[in-house]
Amino acid sequence: MAWEKYDPSLATHDLVQDLKWDPQLRQQFKQNEAAVLDRYKLRPEERRAIEQRDFRALYDLGMHPYLGGQLSRFIWGNDAGRGAIEAANRLVASLQGHAGGIPEKP
């Protein structure tokens, strides 16, 4: 992948930035993800990709990978030793189209 699919206007980018900057929104996202998603002008396929944790589809719609990585940490965990590793593994599995098997996990 290069940048040919990258679309800076994708609303998911704003969702990630707001989650990063607003602890209350993060809490709401954990408790009621749908209500948070309702506030953003997500295209139907974009929202579906978030709900289905389909990062391949999100990236194909134009998501910036760095913010994709952060979205995965809002979903699966952000702590250095555990949650962030699970987030990275699940993200890569989604992008590579398999269920897991990331080599050399610590």
């Binding site: 913010l67 990585g69 890569v92 590579q96 050399e104």
Partner: peptide, 9 residues
Amino acid sequence: HEPGGARYY
């Protein structure tokens, strides 16, 4: 490195 990318590792 490729943060958040398919080649994250």
